[in-house]
Nucleic acid binder design. Sequence first.
RNA 1: CGAGUCGGACGGGCGACCGCGUUGUCGGAGCGAUCCGAUGCCGAGGAAAGUCCGGACUCCACAGGGCAGGGUGGUUGCUAACGGCAACCCGGGGUGACCCGCGGGACAGUGCCACAGAGAACAGACCGCCCGGUGCCUCGUGCACCGGGUAAGGGUGAAACGGCGGUGUAAGAGACCACCAGCGCCCCGGGUGACCGGGGCGGCUAGGUAAACCCCACCCGGAGCAAGACCAAGAGGACCGGCUGUUGUCAUCGGCUGGUCUGCGCGAGCGUUCGAGGGCUGCCCGCCCGAGCUCGCGGGUAGGUCGCUUGAGCCCGUCGGCAACGGCGGGCCUAGAUGGAUGGUCGCCGACUACAGGAUCCGGCUUAUAGCCGAGUCGCUCG
RNA 2: GCCCCCGUAGCCCAAUCGGCAGAGGCAGGCCCCUUAAAAGGGUCCAAGUGUCGGUUCGAGUCCGACCGGGGGUA
Length: 99
Amino acid sequence: MVVHALIRREPAGELHSTTPTWDASTSRVGFVVSKAVGGAVIRHRVTRRLRHLMVDRLAGLPAGTQVVVRALPASAAASSAELGADLDSALRKLLRGSS
RNA sequence: CGAGUCGGACGGGCGACCGCGUUGUCGGAGCGAUCCGAUGCCGAGGAAAGUCCGGACUCCACAGGGCAGGGUGGUUGCUAACGGCAACCCGGGGUGACCCGCGGGACAGUGCCACAGAGAACAGACCGCCCGGUGCCUCGUGCACCGGGUAAGGGUGAAACGGCGGUGUAAGAGACCACCAGCGCCCCGGGUGACCGGGGCGGCUAGGUAAACCCCACCCGGAGCAAGACCAAGAGGACCGGCUGUUGUCAUCGGCUGGUCUGCGCGAGCGUUCGAGGGCUGCCCGCCCGAGCUCGCGGGUAGGUCGCUUGAGCCCGUCGGCAACGGCGGGCCUAGAUGGAUGGUCGCCGACUACAGGAUCCGGCUUAUAGCCGAGUCGCUCG
RNA sequence: GCCCCCGUAGCCCAAUCGGCAGAGGCAGGCCCCUUAAAAGGGUCCAAGUGUCGGUUCGAGUCCGACCGGGGGUA
């Protein structure tokens, strides 16, 4: 999988000229699971697993972080434990690079 | 035991914990919309799929005349409707259970039938066969040429104008005869009907293609829930009609009321009685409206509520019907999301988990599908 | 979700009314031209028409069902 994160470092007003329409202190996560992963049943299963896995990891992120998780075709065959391990390593790498 | 056919109102079950969506109740916060917490009910399919048909629903349209366009195609029924379903008929396949069929019309008309072949659609003499004439010679009733007869045979083709036997003949031919196949008409019997069974007569033979145009019968307005309605952004503006006040009347202006249309800026083109464009959801005539219409570029908004799930609904019983289905009685409430809810862990049974996820809702069709269950059929073997 | 459109050589694309099964261009191989290359000329190769079934004597074309791709729509 590929994980992008926009980690808030400055006050929201200086991030961009666009003022966010959501509460800047809450984190947001989006998932991208394309048709290349599989049919509707497989894509939904991958998204559900990722969603529940991310809920447990939100506490470890800085407030206001925006995350996009893109699932690659191999994630269709992966178990929840494998997806969780991938997520952990990707997030660890991102947090280390930002600090 | 093996092979094959059809059907299934089969498509993992039970339990525990954490988490998610709708919603009821209770408690709390807030003027309120609403939010937070606790707890309870419910929470994807037989195909939810493909989007191939048919409806419900919503908006638009709905003086008249004419012409198109699309669909269906045995019969009788069922149904809200259908291209669906049931039963039956006909044709074809299979030893059989059973399966398959776009299954009306080719004397209403038109078109097409390549190549091959002598000839391909009121058929046709290439080789043959037969008769006559002429010529030649090795005189055989031989050969060549000319004229005619002939559709039995050869060969070509997807298809060559019925099959077989006989009479007949110079050779032949439905020319004639018997039987058979096929066509048309009539009569009798059965069936609601498609059609079936039997008998008689006739002329003696008619090619295929309508998933080619077409003819016949029946059906069909257009778009689609991203339909559409309301609120907000944004607030009005334009037009039409009715009533009414001032006035003698009209015009003008004001008030009330009903309806229709419309988001902004810039540029270009066409047009304003020599009429653009629009409406009568295909086109023409005809009628009506008529001063704007079309295109390109740029930026803006893409929030909320409803539609949204009680429905031609499901289950049980009973009655009618061969059946599809329908009537009556009783019972039940069974997802409603809007970036879009089902995941994780564990125990037992079963066994290694098929195809696969709602998006307005139903009735079908088609396609995908591990495994399981049931009912017929055929063959072999044993008792 | 709903509504449309399209599939022919490696690529782009023709094929009239259904008729010998398929034109052309680019690319590729070989030859000629040139000292050599490019350009040019000649020649060859490459499809069985997305798949399956049906109608027909005969299907790229007509009909049906699937498969794949593209577009539009608040």
